[in-house]
Design a protein around this nucleic acid. Structure first.
Lengths: 80, 80
DNA sequence: AAAATTGTTATTTTTTATCATAACCTATGT
DNA sequence: ACATAGGTTATGATAAAAAATAACAATTTT
């Protein structure tokens, strides 16, 4: 069924969106801006924004870099 | 310094290795084989092996699929 | 209200993950 | 001894993430 594939893709979107929201929330809790993080890990704020809005299927190492820059743990990003 | 770059890369390797070991450990705890997981998520066991051995910088969605196939949470993979 | 800061969106290039296939090794079982 | 099961390693094609740039919107500050 095509519909079930669409549903799977939607669940994936939601998942990435939640991960992104967690990143954004933790970042703000620490009083940091996307630029602050970006400078630390040498990443453009535009890409950070993309990740925080769940538009990217971010890799483990990228998550690790971001976590490191905000003194958080990668697992925190997957806490729902 | 080139040496510090090498050290960063080594840390990354170790990180991915630990994630992979967590995946393998949890899989075995549930009494599943790489093939069992592979069939569920339509992934070759060779690729699973690659991930479990930390040779791949696995993405969030791939981790989610693997977690789903072994009734685990993605955050479990990042528990050190 | 203008300027600076913060965040978003779109686009392109480069790098790399995913996916598939095959060959191989090590046990275990027949 | 051979077959099967479980896992590893290597390789190549394709899809997608990473990275960089630019333009824009929305806040906040001055």
């Amino acid at each position: 069924m095509i519909l079930s594939l669409i549903m799977v893709k939607n669940k994936e979107k939601q998942f990435l969106h939640k991960v992104g929201k967690n990143i954004a929330r933790l970042r703000k809790e620490k009083g940091l801006t996307q630029l602050d993080i970006g400078i630390q890990i040498d990443m453009e704020k535009s890409n950070l924004s993309s990740i925080e809005n769940g538009r990217q299927n971010v890799t483990s190492l990228t998550l690790r870099k971001i976590a490191g820059a905000m003194d958080a743990q990668v697992k925190d990003f997957f806490e729902f």
